[in-house]
């Protein structure tokens, strides 16, 4: 492969890679915002986050599929699926904090890493038992006809559901950031993150804030699951790689830096699809190679200022 043909492939494929990369990158960022929310308040995170995404996708298959078959409009079915996912995932978040995090959160304990990875494995097997091993198709409210754009010699295709993914995940992230910065509850969460004993002296129930952060984190993963189910097929192992990639996004963007997470999430998506122009089956390998290289170069992530006082 000579340089000219590489340039040619890039020119042909780059616009599509950027569009697709933004779509899937926004999902990584959305899941990683969940890591940010719990890590800032508790210095822990849920390694089953990707499998929470999977459970949400499965639930949306059951609810959306079931309701759609019984003749309910797809929009109504989607709203029902979102409602079910929000409630179930919030409860799952509360449960994982109670069972897998809180008992193991000693000062020097890394037990919570093992316990949340354990939760991930349990969820995967449970999903196989409940929903089987098949890849299940979840209908999209927007249909399956791609939107095609002709830019001279280059063509871009995007599914309406993918436009929805990008818009909804960006919207959800903006809403969460706005909530964290502007609402009193968000300020209380930030206070707990900064200095939990002092926050308690203000009358803030630190434990409630921790539980809330786990519920919020899980709902974000759940939302990601509902969004991607129609384009990825729902199956028991669909959450593993997105969960891992979102973790990488959190590490490189900074687990305390929501904007960094957003930027790195979108960038990771684009990198993946650019790699896929040349070799789709090496996509994940090359992506992780790049992540390792970045970590070797900047072990604390790209935007670490090391200036944050932690008391």
């Amino acid at each position: 492969m000579d340089l000219a043909s590489i340039a040619e492939m890039l020119a042909q494929g780059l616009p599509q890679a950027i569009v697709s990369g933004l779509v899937y990158g926004s999902i990584y960022a959305l899941v990683a915002q969940g890591y940010y929310v719990t890590f800032s308040t508790t210095d822990t995170l849920n390694f089953a986050q990707g499998d929470f995404l999977m459970i949400a996708a499965m639930l949306s298959f059951t609810v959306l599929g079931g309701l759609a078959l019984s003749g309910v409009s797809l929009w109504l079915a989607l709203l029902a699926a979102i409602a079910v996912v929000v409630v179930v995932l919030a409860l799952m978040g509360i449960a994982v904090e109670r069972i897998a995090i809180r008992p193991l959160r000693g000062i020097f304990s890394f037990g919570w890493i093992l316990s949340t990875v354990g939760v991930a494995v349990i969820l995967r097997q449970m999903a196989e038992i409940i929903w089987g091993r098949e890849h299940m198709r979840v209908p999209s409210v927007f249909g399956d006809v791609p939107i095609r754009l002709n830019l001279g010699t280059v063509q871009i295709g995007i599914l309406p559901q993918e436009v929805f993914i990008l818009a909804a995940s960006l919207g959800a992230m903006i809403a969460v950031l706005f909530f964290l910065k502007k609402s009193r509850l968000g300020k209380a969460m930030a206070a707990v993150a900064f200095n939990a004993p002092a926050a308690a002296l203000m009358g803030i129930n630190v434990r409630h804030i921790v539980v809330l952060s786990y519920a919020l984190s899980s709902v974000l993963a759940g939302l990601a699951g509902v969004l991607v189910a129609p384009v990825l097929f729902a199956h028991a192992h669909m959450g593993t790689l997105p969960g891992l990639k979102a973790f990488a996004v959190g590490i490189i963007g900074g687990l305390g830096n929501p904007v960094g997470i957003l930027v790195v999430g979108l960038a990771l998506g684009i990198v993946e699809f650019v790699v896929a122009i040349f070799n789709a089956s090496l996509r994940d390998a090359v992506t992780f190679l790049i992540l390792i290289a970045i970590l070797a170069w900047r072990p604390m992530g790209l935007f670490d200022k090391s200036g944050r006082e932690k008391v």
Binding site: K187, F194, A198, A199, I204
Partner: peptide, 14 residues
Amino acid sequence: QVFGDQSVHDNLIL
């Protein structure tokens, strides 16, 4: 033990 990453006004609100 002020909340150093939040504004003075937000510290009061807290």
